[in-house]
Write a protein that binds this DNA or RNA. Structure first.
Length: 752
RNA sequence: UGGGGUAUCGCCAAGCGGUAAGGCACUAGUUUUUGGUACUGGUAUCGGGGGUUCGAAUCCCUCUACCCCAUCCA
């Protein structure tokens, strides 16, 4: 667990500490209607992760309440994903459909309580009656049906006596609710459809809002964690559970929402993913370009890298778009210390070493010096080899490190070669390099004294194996793709005849490799055969050379348009407010902001007036009322406050006559708001009277300066922000009692 | 337009009245037989405007932008 807890863990910890639950139970509740993607991975990591961290439990549950969309092939994919990521669901998959009988009983209970009714409006009417976000809805006339009639109708719905859409069961809540979700939400609909698990047993199916909270309750879930778009549904979640009285029997679950994952250059919605799969833009749900778990798995991502990625991005409620670079980093970072380095030439250019005869085998280690792993293989070397076409240039730009007519280069693990002749075809394309090797430059026993700028990959022509390489790039060319038109036409490049050193194929030291200087690759788990090996590119190595080239050629400092802030209009004051405002300004001498705050808020101005009758300190009172009292009054009514205007007046009086500092006043206020105790009493019992005597404060300052010589030096060097640090330290060591004004003066004097 | 959310560096993200963490990306340098890795350094005043305070990213007021809600989807 990282040192900084996310907000969900904070909630869980508080609940555990408060004894609300004695064991945390979470759940990962996907609907089996599509393949899980990396957004699901985030949810899996959150739910299973929290359960693991707090020694609780996490259920894998299929939320299968819609028979027309769901399928068992998706539940397999979901199980695979959870397992692959390394989490354990005890081989026990839960299904909402298993609770259908219980759910039905709860619905009957609701009907009996008069809290649910069978509505017979058609679909369109229901929509109309619901109203809009700004207009209230109106209730269906069928809401007046008797409990008996509802019971009878509902049972007949279950028995399949009606056609799809003829009736629905709805909760009776409030058709005028500001939260649209609370306008008599549908609980059950008729569906004469075959359910992949329940078969044809049911002709009615529960809706999400009814089923989910109850499934949570039935499983003893404590923290029902979902994504932000369900925030509006939280009210129904609570309504169903509370109305059925379920919280009182045993501790019931509560819903908490976090922001779903977004990654640029890809799409994450199941609908869009399905579109790509069905439209043939990709080869299937496991296409390595897709952000599906199956896709990443096939591409060669490791579970660890996905887990690290999820840990790295954090959990918050802010909608955000994570850069794919972060994902790419996590797989590079993981593979760097794990996989063997091998030589593979993607775009071969023949090199004949004219002064080399015969052949030899070079022992080459699989891992670089900084990876603490053992292992090596034999690299055949001969007169005829292939190098990467990119690694030779006849007219190189400045800063080019590789082979040129003038510049020798090392063949990784082998000899240094120099270019002697460039052979071209009739079109001027380079077809071959004739080179010379330096016999005394063999890797490990180099006495040639030749300095080269780089070592490149190569393969021996006669021993190299031909392999297929699939180069994957981002699926979309647009950072926030809208649709198919944003697809990157170059997202897949297939190289049919790349050349790889033989050990990779014959020895198979691993399934993932770093092809030296190119990237990480994975033996395709589906199409790879010994006759025709296939490797998928997982991710490229960081490449500062091509970056350098680009920036020097393009060097376009993009003009960052500063966003212009538009100031909206402030609602005008009413006549009464205006009068009050003017009085505050003219008669009481308040500044316009405080006067404004007070005048516009009836609760505040009333409270202020009351306090004023006790103490004639208009400005001091106004400040505390407009700031601190306002905070309390945000959530509460005046009658609910633990403190009175009189107490506020007493508090301000103590500040006025300098018994306490304004800092202490804040502290006292907080205490008062909680306990309702009188301010004088709080000050007395806690001994909060302020210390203003410099002779008492000075020694403390000295002590702090002694303990923090670095900061003293920094301050003297001009870092005046540190003033707050010193003042803070003094305040801290006096328990907040030192008079901050005095401390401030003394500190700045001292440090001058 | 009603309700519910969210705003801290190019991208994530700590921070809860007292010196603006960290990661990714970017950038400069050191090491290097991968233009990789590792290491060292650089890079923000907190959506805007006011107010309260000795002191505000944190408290108050206000404005702005973005997301979600009017499926018999989940």
């Amino acid at each position: 667990m990282s040192e900084h807890k996310d907000f969900l863990r904070t909630i869980v910890e508080e609940d555990l500490k408060a004894g609300k639950y004695n064991k945390v139970v979470t759940r990962f509740p996907p609907e089996p209607n599509g393949f899980p993607h990396i957004g699901h991975a985030k949810s899996i990591v959150i739910n299973f992760g929290i359960a693991r961290d707090y020694h609780g439990h996490c259920n894998l549950r299929m939320d299968d309440t819609n028979p027309t969309k769901e399928d068992t092939k998706y539940v397999e994919a979901l199980k695979d994903a959870v397992e692959w990521l390394g989490f354990d669901f005890d081989n026990n998959v839960h299904f909402t459909s298993d609770y259908f009988p219980k759910l039905y009983d709860y619905a009957i209970e609701l009907i009996k309580m008069g809290k649910a009714y069978v509505d017979s409006l058609d679909e369109e009417e229901i929509r109309e009656y619901r109203g809009t976000v700004t207009e209230a809805g109106k209730r269906s006339k069928y809401a007046e049906r008797s409990v008996e009639e509802n019971l009878d109708l509902f049972e007949r719905m279950k028995n399949g006596e009606f056609k799809d859409g003829e009736h629905v069961l709805r909760a009776k809540i409030d058709m005028t609710a500001a939260n649209m979700k609370m306008r008599d939400p549908l609980l059950y609909r008729i569906r004469h459809a075959h359910h992949f698990r329940a078969g044809d047993a049911w002709s009615i199916y529960p809706m999400y809002d009814f089923a989910h909270c109850l499934a949570d309750y039935i499983e003893g879930i404590t923290h029902s964690i979902c994504t932000l778009e369900f925030e509006n549904n939280r009210d129904i979640y609570n309504w169903v559970l509370d109305t059925l009285g379920l919280g009182s029997i045993s501790p019931r679950p509560y819903q908490h929402e976090f922001a779903r994952l977004g990654i640029n250059y890809t799409v994450m919605s199941k609908r869009k993913l399905l579109e790509l799969v069905k439209g043939g833009q990709v080869s299937g749900w496991d296409d390595p370009r897709l952000p599906t778990i199956a896709g990443y798995k096939r591409r060669g991502y490791t579970p660890e890298s996905i887990l690290n990625f999820c840990d790295g991005i954090g959990i918050t409620k802010a909608n955000s778009m994570v850069d794919v670079a972060q994902l790419e980093f996590s797989i590079r970072d993981d593979l760097n210390t794990k996989v063997p380095r091998v030589l593979c030439v993607l775009d071969p250019l023949k090199v004949t070493i004219e002064n080399y005869e015969g052949s030899e085998e070079i022992e080459a280690t699989y891992y670089p010096h900084d990876v603490p792993k053992e292992g090596s293989r034999k690299l055949p070397f001969s007169r005829e080899i292939y190098i990467e076409r990119d690694d030779f240039m006849e007219n190189p730009p400045k800063g080019y490190y590789r082979l040129t007519p003038e510049q020798p280069v090392r063949l990784k693990h082998a000899y240094i070669i120099s270019c002697k002749e460039v052979v071209k075809d009739v079109n001027g394309n380079i077809t071959e390099i004739k080179a010379e090797y330096h016999p005394d430059s063999r890797s490990g026993s180099d006495t040639s004294g030749i300095k080269v700028k780089s070592a490149i990959q190569w393969v021996s022509a006669s021993e190299a194996k031909e392999v297929e390489i699939r180069l994957y790039d981002r699926l979309f060319k647009d950072e926030a793709p809208e649709g198919l038109e944003d697809i990157n036409p170059d997202s897949l490049k297939v190289i049919k005849n790349a050349l790889i050193e033989p050990a990779v194929i014959t020895e198979k030291p691993d399934e993932r490799f770093q092809f030296e200087r190119q990237g990480y690759f994975y033996a395709d788990p589906v199409d790879y055969t010994d006759e025709k090996p296939v490797f998928n590119k997982i991710v490229g190595l960081k490449d500062s050379w091509s970056k350098k080239k680009k920036t020097t050629t393009e060097s376009a400092p993009k003009p960052q348009a500063k966003k212009v802030q538009i100031d909206g209009e402030v609602a005008p004051m009413t006549e009464v407010q205006e009068k009050l405002f003017n009085k505050y300004r003219a008669d009481l001498g308040l500044n316009s902001e405080v006067a404004n705050t007070l005048a516009r808020d009836e609760k505040l101005s009333y409270f202020y007036a009351e306090a004023l009758t006790v103490l004639n300190s208009p400005v001091g009172l106004a400040n505390i009322v407009a700031n601190d009292v306002a905070r309390e009054l945000k959530a509460k009514e005046a009658s609910e406050l633990k403190f009175s205007a009189k107490q506020i007046a007493d508090l301000v009086k103590m500040v006025d006559d300098e018994t306490i500092s304004s800092k202490i006043a804040k502290q006292v206020f907080e205490e008062m708001a909680k306990s309702g105790e009188s301010p004088t009493q709080i000050v007395e019992s806690k001994g909060l009277v302020q210390i203003s005597d410099p002779s008492k404060i000075l020694p403390i300052i000295d002590e702090i300066m002694e303990k923090n010589p670095d900061n003293v030096a920094k301050f003297k060097a001009g870092n005046t922000k540190l003033l707050g640090f010193f003042v803070g330290q003094v305040l801290k060591s006096t328990g907040g009692k030192a008079n901050p004004k005095v401390v401030n003066e003394l500190v700045s004097e001292k440090l001058k």
